[in-house]
Amino acid sequence: MEKEQNLEQEEMVAAEIDPEETAEETVQQSEKGSEENGRIAELESKLEEAENRYLRLQADFDNFRRRSRLDLEAGAKYRAQSLISDLLPAMDNFERALKMEADNDQAKSLMQGVEMVYRSILEALKKEGAEPIEAEGKEFDPNMHQAVMQVQEENFGSNIVVEEFQKGYILKDRVIRPSMVKVNQ
């Protein structure tokens, strides 16, 4: 009797499992698996794209931060540039005034006062890092000098500054105004 019951149960189980249904289920599971694999590949691709975008943004931000720091440093380093540029014509006028000859005591004392003011402004400029460019007797440098004349003198070597018409100034490592000079050929 037990054998008969086992056979009946096996027949019932066999009757419930249809081979066609089993094949369809396998195909559906396989399609689900390939859909899931495709979805996983798509998500991995999106993740990689997002990571790349994040890395680019981070690099851009680092570059922005570095540029901002450099701009601030340059601003601090050259903060007096516009003031110095505005003072240069006054310095030129002082230099012209100092070339005048004083013929009496009153004019001499006035010239001493002008010279004291000139020196104090020159010292203030030096404190800020501005200095006159040395020109006369030096070799012509197009970065520091502006040649307005050329002469041929035997006392000077070739490409040497013979005379300075207007003083040039440099602020730290930046030329504010080049010297206007006469150069020997």
Rank of each mutant, 00 (worst) to 15 (best):
E134G: 13
D173L: 13
M144G: 00
I84F: 14
G75K: 11
Q29G: 07
K172Q: 15
I40E: 08
R66G: 00
Q106L: 08
Y54I: 01
V117N: 08
D86N: 14
V27P: 03
Q5I: 15
S85R: 04
K3T: 11
F140D: 01
F140P: 03
D103M: 10
R66K: 02
G129E: 05
V27S: 09
K46A: 04
F140Q: 01
E136L: 03
N159F: 13
M180P: 00
N184Y: 12
Y78I: 11
N6Y: 10
V114Q: 02
Y118W: 06
L83N: 11
A59P: 00
E2R: 09
A102Y: 06
A50V: 01
E4C: 10
L7D: 15
A76E: 11
K108I: 12
A50E: 04
E20A: 14
E115A: 08
E101W: 02
S45C: 09
L87E: 14
D173N: 15
D60S: 00
Y78D: 08
M1D: 10
G75N: 13
V148T: 11
E95C: 03
G137M: 08
S82Y: 03
P132M: 12
Q166N: 06
D86V: 03
N104L: 05
M12S: 15
V117K: 02
E51N: 04
M180Q: 02
V162Q: 04
D71T: 12
A76R: 05
G38H: 13
E115G: 05
M12L: 15
K32S: 09
V162P: 14
E153L: 14
P19M: 03
M116R: 12
S120H: 08
A50M: 01
E131A: 10
S179C: 07
I40Y: 07
A15L: 08
E73P: 03
P132L: 11
E51C: 01
G157T: 09
K99V: 04
Q106D: 09
L55Q: 01
R53A: 04
A50L: 02
E35D: 11
K3Y: 14
V161R: 00
V148L: 05
M100V: 07
E134D: 10
N143C: 04
Q106Y: 10
V13L: 13
M144P: 00
V117Q: 06
Q81C: 06
G168M: 05
L55H: 00
A23Q: 10
V175I: 05
K138E: 08
L72H: 14
S34K: 12
R53Y: 00
G129C: 12
K46E: 04
L98T: 07
S68D: 05
L70H: 09
E21P: 06
Q112A: 09
S109Y: 04
R67L: 05
V114W: 01
G38P: 10
P132F: 15
D105G: 09
Q5R: 15
K167Q: 14
I17L: 12
R174I: 05
F64Y: 02
G75M: 14
D86S: 12
N155H: 08
A97E: 07
E101C: 02
Q29M: 11
N184A: 04
D86T: 06
L125F: 15
A74R: 15
R79Y: 14
K32G: 02
D92C: 11
F165N: 05
L57F: 01
P178G: 01
E42C: 07
R96F: 03
N143E: 02
A102T: 03
I17K: 09
E42M: 08
F61P: 01
E163H: 09
A41T: 07
E20T: 14
